[in-house]
């Protein structure tokens, strides 16, 4: 079994301390742990793919592609991922977490229930205005849904998946060179703070 591949040296003329790679006896275990967590997230995505496929086929296909990507990442981390791929893995995992948060807070613009919004069809998958002689809007709006119908609710599997992805993200960030780790950490901090600020504005204004 190979071990985790790491950058072999710093580039000439760079700050050696800042560019120093993460090293240490626990690094291989860290990579494997990240791989295991990525595998858990992939399995959750695979488990929910059929029901999403039945509801809206593109969503099911997307989840299968995501699961395949995470399974590949998991085996790569287990075998010893090239250090050059760690930033991409961080990006992928952070992106999935971001997508999850968006789908559970503001809704995704590609959800089938919102696909008609740009066409003036009231967010319905029916032609809302195509009722000859109809007065007003005949589409029932269930309280608590309405325009937010595309926002999914959080379930147990969602929590399992996002916790696994956050754990994998933390481990992957920890595998980055110090300078990259600092930049990525600052970026994630900024994104997190923005999220809290937007939530506060929506919640309290």
């Amino acid at each position: 079994m190979s071990t985790t591949a790491l950058p072999s040296s710093s580039s000439p003329g760079t700050d050696t301390a800042a560019d120093a790679v993460s090293t240490g006896p626990g690094l291989a275990a860290q990579a494997r742990a990240a791989g295991a967590l990525s595998c858990i997230a992939a399995l959750v995505h695979l488990a929910v793919a059929p029901e999403h496929f039945a509801e809206w086929a593109p969503a099911g296909v997307f989840l299968i592609v995501v699961a395949a990507g995470q399974l590949w990442l998991a085996q790569a981390l287990w075998r010893g991922l090239s250090a050059r791929l760690v930033p991409a893995a961080v990006l992928l995992t952070a992106g999935l977490v971001g997508l999850y948060v968006a789908s559970r807070t503001i809704g995704l613009p590609v959800h089938p229930d919102t696909a008609g919004q740009g066409l003036g069809l009231g967010g319905s998958h029916h032609g809302g205005s195509q009722v000859p002689g109809g007065h007003g809007n005949g589409m029932p709006i269930v309280p608590g849904s309405g325009a937010e119908a595309a926002v999914e609710t959080v379930g147990t599997l969602d929590l399992v998946c996002v916790v696994a992805e956050l754990g994998a993200l933390a481990l992957l960030v920890g595998m980055l060179p110090v300078r990259q780790r600092r930049s990525v950490g600052n970026l994630l901090l900024a994104v997190g703070l923005c999220g809290w600020v937007v939530w506060g504005l929506v919640r309290f204004t």
Partner: peptide, 27 residues
Amino acid sequence: MSLSRRDLMKLGVVGGAALALPLERTV
């Protein structure tokens, strides 16, 4: 893990948002 306390705090902010905001929205 080769993360400093500061790194962990940064990740905690984004992780907390990722966990809490969807839950708050659902509730």
